[in-house]
Write a protein that binds this DNA or RNA. Structure first.
Length: 780
DNA sequence: TGCCCGGGTGTTTTT
DNA sequence: CACCCGGGCA
């Protein structure tokens, strides 16, 4: 069995351990993917039916690549039958099979974030709430974390603690909004991203026969990036694995970077509690990077308290020291990086694809982009506004969605009057209102306007009926027409193509080309499906498209420098990596500075960034940077100081002091800042201690199936954390203003603002994270 | 009904 | 700075 020879001892042991629960802690670059693929190949070689293997990956692209690699060992006809994909896509597929059990149509729509927020916006408006207080973004985040923690709208409404904290944050109606949102999604036959996990849990809870079937179907489970699973995902895995317990999870606690979307590092730390007889494998040899990079990364991550002990090492050459670049402005930073890429490329005779530029926030891509463009260096930006989020694409997709699932409210709103067909806002409002009164989907209302007493005149009725007929015509050919033929005809006859074709502005031309590209995409899909002999339907295409990730963008053979956020770079590797914007308040992000666990996550993020590099890592910063319009002064990130100096090469201009940067209010820097920060943390109202204490009892110890009720913890929403320390009506003491009373709280933590009345100095609005408030015992 | 302008608001990170 | 929204006007 030759493939086993390609593994080192611990890798081989992990691959050969087939039965029972196991956990693989895989350091960065330690051949994790290799272990996963060979483990699956090994299973199949040992007679396991590919249909009974479920492998959950972090991106669909990773799944595709793994399948291809497995196919080289066991053949494509076997490999193609493995269930492999992201949590979201695998369970979307399962939910499609089981939709009727949950009262959903098989063709349910998947709402993306835009759809969800737009729906929330209209609900907030309809309920007569102020969208300055009930900000769709905030409300969405809140609902999302409720779902990730499996709290239903009902439970949310009934939970006293939630109510108290929502009232304290000035949003007592949040529960009702959540309730209405869930109801509207259901009536629209739509699930949002979180629903795909949430509803899977509901399915497994309410339909034991279904759970039973999948438990027995999937005899072997593999989960990649286990450190980034949230509670809903954790519970799905736990339930599916409950019968056979052939579960192998792979991850690295040092690379957990998704807690903001509910990922819980405790899942990896508590694996041994859930599966006491588990076997642990540690992959510690790094095959990716130079010794310098490995050691530098180790020196950084060692500053974190929460971690599993491991010793990542490499036998690779020592390599070049980490290079530092310091620019005066963000634009100059871009030029320096581009220049450096150009020089390395020339000196080492490299392709552009050897380089990646990684940043903390998407906004940083602009200065990099400009510099690269000026130097004629080809590049590609991953992330940001993705192709599928462009207006023209969403418009056409909305037609597809509506044809597949006419109840889709967001799709209907998008296209009912685009291109303009004389159905105005007033009519749309009436339709929505009537739908709400009749407890129906808007589509059902316009299907039978008279029966539903929709108050419209004859002309409007005629236009509506024309629209209905138009959609229905295509709906009926869904089952008999190939995806591409249908898509093209829709684009044509809806008039979208014509509308954009006549627009000769550069933007208009670009939009038209984008539509062509989308149609080409459908064509590829259709042809693939024909080759495979599987269903070639437009609704299948939609299901695929809804869950594509930026990382799934086809990596054609073109040569370009990759630009992306560090989050998006997870799992990737490049010979030369530039990590830019290493400045306090940017990286680490300003929002992470007030508690230890958030800061540790930023450090892990930096660790991930460093360990993407194979040959050399370069770190850059700018002394000044434009941030939302105005110039700000920047100080070097504390993370730079945390790298062992033996591995860093400082440029001559490094220590040059800027005379006028002395005080930014709270801008400390360097190791000193770290210490003083550490020393002060216990006085912080948002102290991490509060957060951790709150989260301990919240973890359902055994994750017992029936138990969907989870006490919301600080992890559910950042707002709890602030409510913990400071609440409405509380007596507090401020270092400068003295004693006062909290009269108003607004905004979500960590940006919670408190209005406090100080008898001595009047009303002050303070940001909780900066105001070191001391809570006084209730004097009443 | 549609376009233009001004003001307000907001930035981590993503399926 | 960039986007979105609402109001005012044609």
């Amino acid at each position: 069995m030759s493939y086993l020879d390609e593994l080192n001892d611990s890798q081989r042991q992990a691959v050969q351990h087939i039965h029972g629960p196991s956990m693989v802690i895989a350091g960065a670059g330690s051949g994790k993917t290799r272990v996963l693929t060979y483990r699956i190949a090994h299973l199949i070689k040992n007679g396991v039916d590919p249909f009974s293997i479920l492998s959950l990956t972090f991106t669909n692209k990773a799944a595709k690549e793994m399948k291809e690699r497995i196919a080289t060992v066991v053949g494509y006809s076997e490999a193609r039958n493995i269930w492999m994909g992201t949590f979201h896509s695998v369970f979307a597929r399962i939910l499609r099979f089981e939709a009727d059990k949950l009262g959903y149509p098989k063709n349910f729509t998947i709402y993306d974030t835009q759809d969800s927020k737009s729906l929330l916006k209209s609900i907030i408006k309809e309920m007569g709430l102020d969208d300055k207080i009930y900000k769709p973004n905030v409300v969405f985040g809140r609902i999302s974390s409720a779902k990730n923690n499996l709290i239903s709208p009902r439970e949310y409404l009934d939970n006293k603690d939630v109510k108290i904290s929502d009232e304290a944050s000035g949003k007592p109606k949040l529960g009702e909004v959540y309730f209405a949102y869930a109801d509207r999604c259901f009536k629209a036959g739509a699930m949002d991203f979180d629903d795909l996990l949430y509803k899977t849990n509901v399915l497994f809870r309410d339909h034991p026969e279904s759970l039973h079937a999948y438990q027995h179907k999937f005899k072997y489970l593999l989960v990649d990036e286990y450190q980034d699973t949230n509670y809903a995902q954790y519970l799905i895995v736990r339930k599916l694995a409950a019968v056979n317990e052939n579960l192998c999870v792979v991850g690295d606690d040092a690379q957990s970077i998704y807690s903001f979307r509910g990922a819980n590092i405790q899942n990896i730390l508590n694996f041994k509690k859930d599966y006491p007889d588990y076997v642990l494998f540690k992959l510690e040899q790094n095959y990716r990077s130079t010794q310098t990079i490995v050691e530098a990364a180790n020196s950084v991550i060692s500053k974190n308290k929460d971690q599993i002990q491991k010793n990542v090492w490499t036998s690779n050459p020592e390599g070049e020291p980490i290079k530092l670049l310091r620019a005066n402005t963000d634009n100059e930073e871009g030029r320096m990086v581009a220049q450096s890429i150009f020089e390395s490329k020339m000196q080492e005779q490299l392709k552009e694809s050897a380089f990646a530029i990684l940043y903390r926030t998407n906004a940083q891509s602009r200065s990099m982009e400009e510099a690269l463009r000026k130097m004629n260096i080809p590049y590609k930006i991953f992330g940001g506004l993705s192709f599928y989020q462009r207006k023209e694409i969403k418009d056409l997709l909305a037609y597809f969605r509506l044809i597949c699932n006419p109840k889709d409210e967001e799709a209907l709103k998008r296209v009912i009057n685009y291109p303009a067909r004389g159905i105005g806002q007033t009519t749309i409002d009436k339709i929505i209102l009537t739908a709400r009164e009749k407890q129906k989907a808007p589509w059902e209302v316009i299907l039978e306007p008279a029966e539903n007493a929709l108050p419209i005149n004859k002309g409007t009725a005629a236009k509506l009926s024309e629209f209905v007929t138009f959609i229905q015509r295509f709906h009926h050919s869904l089952a008999i027409t190939s995806a591409y033929d249908l898509a093209f005809e829709v684009a044509q006859s809806a008039g979208i193509l014509k509308e954009l074709y006549t627009d000769k502005t550069p933007e208009g031309v670009a939009r038209y080309e984008n539509l062509q590209e989308l149609l080409n995409g459908v064509k590829d899909f259709s042809e693939q499906r024909k080759d495979l002999g599987t269903d070639d339907r437009l609704d299948d295409f939609l299901m695929d498209v809804a869950l594509l990730t930026d990382a799934d963008q086809v990596g054609d053979e073109e040569d370009f420098v990759s630009l992306m956020t560090i989050h998006a770079a997870k799992g990737l590797e490049f010979p030369y990596v530039y990590i830019v914007g290493l400045e306090e308040n940017l990286f680490p992000s300003q929002l992470s500075l007030s508690n230890r666990s958030d800061l540790e996550e930023e450090r892990r993020l930096f660790y991930v960034a460093l360990t993407r590099a194979e040959k050399q890592a370069t770190i850059s910063m700018a002394n000044t940077r434009y941030r939302w319009g105005n110039l700000t002064y920047c100080e070097p990130s504390r993370f730079i100081d945390e790298i062992d100096k033996n591995y860093v090469k400082f440029p001559p201009n490094w220590d040059r002091q800027l005379s006028d940067v002395s005080d930014l209010g709270f801008g400390n820097t360097g190791a000193g800042a770290w210490k003083s920060f550490g020393g002060k943390e216990s006085k912080e109202p948002n102290s991490y201690k509060t957060k951790e204490q709150a989260s301990v009892p919240s973890r359902t110890p055994a994750g017992i199936p029936k138990n969907l009720k989870r006490i919301p913890s600080s992890a559910d929403s950042s707002e709890y954390a602030s409510a913990d320390g400071v609440a409405l009506g509380m007596d507090v003491e401020h270092a400068r203003f003295g004693k006062g009373k909290v009269v108003k709280l607004e905004g979500a933590s960590p940006d919670t603002k408190a209005t406090i009345f100080f008898p001595g100095s009047g009303k002050k609005v303070l940001l909780l994270k900066f105001a070191k408030l001391k809570v006084l015992p209730d004097t009443a």
